[in-house]
Amino acid sequence: MYIPAHFTAGPDVIDGLLRRPGAANLVTMTSQGLLATFLPLRYDPSTGENGALHGHLARTNPQWSEPAIGESLVIIQGEDAYVSPSWYASKAEHGRVVPTWNYSTVHVYGKLTIHDDVAWLGNHVRRLTDLNEGQSERPWSVDDAPERYISGQLRAIVGVELVITRIEGKAKLSQNRPDKDIDGVVAGLEARGQSEIAADVARARQEKPQRDAGS
């Protein structure tokens, strides 16, 4: 991934993207070419040196049965937003501004392992469910469904585990703009109802190194 120095994601940003509930794209190179699936994942920091990502695929999905060649890749996407040049104070000063897109993303590389064990799958779906139900007022539990029904559902999936070998993180959040332009971006995003990425931009401004703007 192309990462200019001023857009390098720090450890806190990377850890936050890994741990937050959500789905991501699993991409594998196989003898049939590239295969990709968008699926919910859970980060397990206790596995291996760098942790692992756990997920599952439908048993009918050919991605699990086609052996991955080399490293596999998971692309995790954070908040993203269009940035209008009309938000920049620089527009009124000299007009040399253009639109851009702000975003955070993490590319996670690793060795893909397939799990077809009912005990592993049962533990996985419970943990994944608990992660995603964590903010609910009345969280649903796997135990709320009939045991026979859950057993049937588990037979219809296959577990995937990406044991992480390396991570690349990028947070493109207007760090290369002057502070007065960043103020405009934060205000513009908040006015558009995108408060989460507005907060990301404000936080990135506080953490950005003191360097000249780059491309």
Rank of each mutant, 00 (worst) to 15 (best):
residue 96 R to H: 11
residue 139 P to D: 13
residue 111 K to C: 00
residue 113 T to Q: 08
residue 170 K to T: 05
residue 130 D to G: 01
residue 93 E to W: 02
residue 145 A to Y: 12
residue 152 G to E: 14
residue 101 W to T: 11
residue 147 E to L: 11
residue 176 N to F: 03
residue 102 N to E: 02
residue 184 G to C: 12
residue 141 S to N: 06
residue 113 T to N: 10
residue 182 I to Q: 09
residue 124 H to R: 09
residue 161 E to W: 00
residue 94 H to C: 02
residue 173 L to Q: 12
residue 124 H to C: 11
residue 123 N to F: 02
residue 116 D to L: 04
residue 97 V to K: 06
residue 126 R to T: 14
residue 141 S to M: 13
residue 150 I to V: 14
residue 152 G to C: 12
residue 185 V to K: 14
residue 106 V to W: 00
residue 98 V to Y: 05
residue 175 Q to L: 01
residue 109 Y to N: 03
residue 128 L to M: 15
residue 112 L to A: 10
residue 94 H to S: 10
residue 181 D to L: 03
residue 90 S to V: 05
residue 98 V to I: 08
residue 164 I to V: 15
residue 105 T to L: 03
residue 162 L to A: 06
residue 119 A to K: 10
residue 180 K to W: 12
residue 108 V to H: 08
residue 104 S to P: 00
residue 112 L to F: 08
residue 165 T to E: 15
residue 133 E to P: 07
residue 116 D to V: 01
residue 164 I to Q: 13
residue 134 G to C: 05
residue 116 D to H: 04
residue 144 D to T: 08
residue 185 V to N: 09
residue 108 V to Y: 07
residue 108 V to S: 14
residue 127 R to N: 15
residue 167 I to M: 10
residue 139 P to T: 09
residue 137 E to P: 04
residue 102 N to V: 02
residue 96 R to V: 05
residue 117 D to I: 05
residue 94 H to E: 04
residue 117 D to K: 13
residue 115 H to S: 09
residue 90 S to G: 03
residue 157 I to K: 08
residue 139 P to W: 11
residue 120 W to C: 11
residue 138 R to E: 13
residue 123 N to A: 13
residue 155 R to M: 03
residue 142 V to M: 15
residue 105 T to D: 02
residue 181 D to T: 07
residue 137 E to H: 12
residue 168 E to V: 02
residue 123 N to W: 02
residue 132 N to C: 03
residue 179 D to C: 00
residue 117 D to M: 14
residue 149 Y to G: 01
residue 183 D to K: 06
residue 158 V to G: 10
residue 156 A to W: 02
residue 93 E to Q: 12
residue 89 A to S: 13
residue 98 V to T: 13
residue 111 K to S: 01
residue 136 S to M: 11
residue 161 E to A: 12
residue 123 N to D: 13
residue 174 S to D: 08
residue 112 L to H: 07
residue 127 R to S: 14
residue 166 R to F: 05
residue 154 L to D: 07
residue 126 R to W: 01
residue 149 Y to R: 00
residue 149 Y to E: 03
residue 123 N to S: 14
residue 177 R to Q: 15
residue 89 A to K: 12
residue 98 V to S: 08
residue 146 P to R: 06
residue 118 V to W: 02
residue 168 E to Q: 12
residue 128 L to R: 10
residue 144 D to V: 11
residue 141 S to V: 06
residue 150 I to W: 09
residue 133 E to K: 04
residue 170 K to S: 01
residue 176 N to I: 00
residue 146 P to Q: 04
residue 101 W to R: 10
residue 131 L to M: 07
residue 113 T to C: 09
residue 185 V to H: 13
residue 109 Y to D: 00
residue 145 A to H: 09
residue 129 T to I: 01
residue 139 P to F: 10
residue 107 H to W: 02
residue 170 K to V: 01
residue 116 D to F: 06
residue 146 P to G: 06
residue 175 Q to K: 05
residue 177 R to F: 00
residue 184 G to Y: 12
residue 171 A to I: 10
residue 181 D to C: 06
residue 185 V to A: 13
residue 142 V to R: 13
residue 169 G to L: 04
residue 135 Q to V: 04
residue 140 W to L: 04
residue 119 A to N: 10
residue 101 W to G: 14
residue 171 A to L: 06
residue 180 K to S: 13
residue 111 K to T: 00
residue 137 E to W: 00
residue 158 V to S: 09
residue 170 K to C: 01
residue 125 V to R: 04
residue 89 A to I: 02
residue 174 S to G: 08
residue 109 Y to A: 01
residue 142 V to S: 10
residue 178 P to T: 05
residue 177 R to T: 04
residue 123 N to Q: 13
residue 143 D to T: 14
